[in-house]
Design a protein around this nucleic acid. Structure first.
Lengths: 357, 357
DNA sequence: ATTAGCACTCAAACTTTAGGAGTGCTAACA
DNA sequence: TGTTAGCACTCCTAAAGTTTGAGTGCTAAT
């Protein structure tokens, strides 16, 4: 892990050389030598001079060389320096990306899958996104209906118009009047309550009043509980995992397998994104280099995350995973871009449907 | 593609040698030489004799050799012979597989994911499964409820107790009586009808009677249409795609990428499974060797598919993808096993819930 | 402080070599 | 006539050696 507090300051020339070297490395993927830099640099410095500077930068911990006679590549600290640097460049105009169009779709699920796919195709990295989650969810409306002899369906509408339903099988018939009474009871008791507010007291009182239909009440409570928890364990959609094996430094058999496995299983990703939610910067974008992500399979990767916000208290996380030498600039831009798109896609839509049961 | 009608008949000895050779190749993954077979064979035949037989088998098209001085490996026709052969061995006792336990879960989606995962872990191949689909679906029950000023939710129960709901936003308020009337209208008109039976005539008649609430009727019809079609484009769940790159013959960069891509994208898989549905054998299990599957990325793979049946007219497809030298015997057993498990898992449950909206 | 020059290092690519597994063919045998 | 031993031959594989070129560190001159 890079200790940011321990990054020696650089004079102008070193700064320039370091940035140029990293940029070049990001483009080529090859270690960068002194001659290359000397040619690239506007101030006419000889390769020998650059060599000296590079030796210094190596000593300071910004650079390293894969072996004696190769050029230099950035260390994690080098990357960190670079990323900090470009994050400071105040948002330049966002160039319109090629076809970053998200079709309006009915289903949240589909939209998210489209988003990750678009991102993956455009960036050539692996991408992931969580379903949005609300923090404070309340019950809004409950309705029981008999749709067949001995078969009830419970319909529950939650805050944010998330709809949940559950089929309840009865042992014996039930008349419409009873259903009406139960509906009234359920609605008057539960509407407007949050998860925390539906406590034992409330439940007991309700059961008392439900005379002989506790079974139904139990079922409804189950469904509500499910709706609450379902909302908590966020789904993660991914795309472009295979992009990663295009990058030689990630493609070695062992590593590639672990990476792809992580993207198949997703539980590690979910954990990571859940944690990432907590340490967001002001603009919601954050870069994790190497082991900063704390995901072992991604030791050799960098991850860029962003939050997206749907306005009505719902928000989720997007992440882009690539090699450490990923094109940070364009990734940052893409993320900002997609954030905006997501916002505007849902801003017009008052209704958000969510996949359920 | 193997032309089954063109497979020369084999005498006993050739038959024995071919089967033994393939079996050995499945185990080791290495080309099999004449000496190996000579030692393995119970009848004491010299390697020279075996060599002659092998030359014959090669000429017939059952075998091939990767290069002059390697042993022999089966051609696709060889595999086909082997598979046909072992499919004929009447169901031997199915050994209880290690932990083939599917926890009962509420959600179909979760169950299917568990199934593919279990299969993948147990077989070490890649697996896929489609959501079950019904052919003849009918509307069973419709209910409109007002849950908020100007917000209706339409609840639609289909055959097989598939529940669908749709939120409808109104421009102006609506009174309970009108809702009752609409409910009555919708139910009397649509209940019991199939997709085909809801035609223009029915729709027109209903709209006529709905006086000024055509918008709501339209919305309900939309939701019904969605429920019908949704059922048609089956979802595909996969697991263990990364298992495939463990097999050297599939792991070469190019091929591996295509394969993994196919498993990420899934549309090719969906197509394949949809087609597979149509040419099932009596026990519902079928083996596709190499290009028999007609999926280009799986040219070097074999696919074993099975149908599973949920009883109430709903059925889906499972597939296992591995190298051509996959352990056909155990895969066939696993599939039979899982089929049974799926059946019994749902047999007890009268209610099948399905992911919707 | 900068630079030219030079000896040195090392990975990558290519070549060479040796070894071994397996074949096809022939001739001998039961 | 089917089977087998023997042998020359092929071709893959792995190991060892060779070449090349990019790049470095150091030193001495400017």
């Amino acid at each position: 892990m890079v200790d940011v507090s321990n990054m020696p300051p650089l004079d102008d020339r070193k700064h320039k050389i370091l940035m140029l070297l990293i940029q070049n490395y990001l483009e080529t993927g090859e270690p960068v030598g002194s001659r290359t830099l000397s040619k690239l640099l506007t101030d006419n410095l000889s390769s020998a001079t650059i060599r000296n500077e590079m030796a210094d930068l190596e000593e300071m911990g910004y650079l390293t060389s894969p072996h004696t006679s190769a050029g230099r590549i950035p260390t994690d600290m080098g990357y960190r320096f670079y990323v900090n640097e470009i994050m400071n460049e105040h948002d330049k105009k966002i160039e319109s990306m090629e076809e970053f169009v998200i079709e309006k779709t009915e289903k949240m699920e589909k939209v998210l899958q489209q988003v990750v796919k678009t991102l993956a195709v455009n960036t050539n990295y692996a991408t992931m996104i969580t379903t949005p989650s609300t923090n404070k969810n309340r019950v809004k409306f409950i309705q029981l209906s008999l749709f067949e002899e001995c078969k009830l369906v419970a319909l529950i509408v939650m805050d944010g118009n998330i709809v949940k339903n559950k089929v309840i099988e009865l042992n014996e018939g039930i008349d419409q009047e009873t259903i009406l009474k139960l509906n009234l009871l359920l609605n008057t008791t539960l509407n407007g309550l949050s998860k925390e507010e539906i406590n034992l007291g409330v439940i007991a009182r309700m059961k008392e009043q439900s005379e002989g239909y506790q079974e139904i009440v139990n079922n409804v409570l189950d469904a509500i509980a499910e709706a609450f928890t379902e909302d908590e364990d966020l789904e993660v959609y991914t795309s472009g995992a295979t992009n990663l094996i295009k990058y030689p430094e990630l493609a070695d058999k062992d590593n590639a397998e672990k990476l792809l496995l992580a993207f198949e299983d997703k539980s590690e990703l979910r954990e990571f994104l859940e944690e990432a939610k907590e340490d967001v910067s002001e603009d919601g974008i954050r870069v994790y280099i190497g082991d900063e992500s704390n995901v072992s399979s991604m030791q050799d990767c960098s991850v860029v995350t962003a939050t997206y916000d749907l306005g009505n208290g719902m928000s989720g996380h997007i992440g882009i995973v690539g090699p450490k030498r990923m094109d940070y600039k364009s990734v940052l831009e893409s993320l900002k871009n997609i954030k905006e798109q997501l916002d505007s896609t849902f801003k017009g839509e008052k209704r958000i449907e969510k996949k359920k049961n």
